[in-house]
């Protein structure tokens, strides 16, 4: 029987907290960019201008058809070189965090755009007619009438996707970034206490994600009773 020894955890807490900050940072910016870029993609996809709609469909289908870990590896291996030459960074600059964030954002946008597209389509067509009949331009009717209603309908789905995204941030371990999972792994490896650290990390992920999904449930009840 394995004897658990949790003693290396208290001392490692500051390091683990730094890791958590990276996880949260990646999540926050991927959610933010994902929603903005995802909204644009969704609007392109629904646009009557064919090339725009083809581009958006291609983008979404591409990113939804490849594993996230692959995208992260590409961004880890290839994109930093690009940025170095493009933006004239000294070779060997630590771009792991920025390229991981970029990979996440571009990948998640594909998923967000599908959620947002469904949200836009959930707004009755008559609303667009009414907005147009009042003299609003297409842009105004989207911005003032359709998107606010779409987002209201979508809040639970967007938050649920954010929770999934938070869990997925652990995949940045492929680029040896010390996010929360990576930090726990490093500490466990160093102290020979891998099992304890991974159990602890798992418990932390569980508590955060479970509480977050409970909050989403409550919000859902509040805004969509029935």
């Amino acid at each position: 029987m394995h004897e658990f020894d949790w003693s290396s955890i208290p001392g490692a807490l500051p390091f683990l907290w730094d890791g958590m900050k990276i996880s949260l940072l990646i999540t926050a910016q991927a959610v933010l960019i994902g929603i903005v870029w995802g909204t644009l993609l969704a609007m392109m996809r629904l646009s009557s201008i064919k090339p725009l709609s083809w581009f958006a469909a291609g983008y979404v289908n591409f990113f939804r058809a490849i594993p996230l870990v692959m995208v992260l590896l590409w961004f880890f291996l290839i994109v930093p070189r690009f940025i170095e030459t493009l933006l004239d960074f000294p070779p060997g600059s630590d771009l792991r965090l920025s390229s991981a964030m970029m990979g996440f954002a571009l990948f998640e946008s594909a998923y967000y755009s599908e959620i947002i597209r469904a949200g836009i389509q959930s707004v009755p067509k008559g609303q667009i007619s009414a907005a147009s009949a009042l003299g609003m331009t297409y842009g105004q009717s989207m911005r003032l009438v359709v998107l606010p209603q779409a987002f209201r309908n979508m809040v639970p789905l967007l938050l649920t996707q954010a929770i999934i995204l938070f869990q997925d941030t652990s995949l940045v371990y492929v680029s040896a970034l010390a996010d929360f999972f990576g930090a726990a792994y490093k500490v466990g490896d160093r102290d020979g206490r891998l099992v304890e650290l991974l159990l602890f990390a798992g418990a932390v992920y569980f508590v955060i994600c479970f509480s977050a999904s409970q909050i989403v449930k409550r919000l859902q009840k509040k805004y969509h009773p029935a």
Binding site: P124, G126, Q127, S129, A130, A131, S132, A133, L134, G135, M136, T137, V145, P148, Q149, R152
Partner: peptide, 21 residues
């Protein structure tokens, strides 16, 4: 400019189409 024209023509719909938000 259709938007400009529509701004001068009022329309009332079967399903009201007030903005619910």
């Amino acid at each position: 400019n259709l938007s400009k024209l529509r701004a001068q023509v009022g329309m009332v719909f079967q399903n009201f189409e007030l903005f619910p938000h």
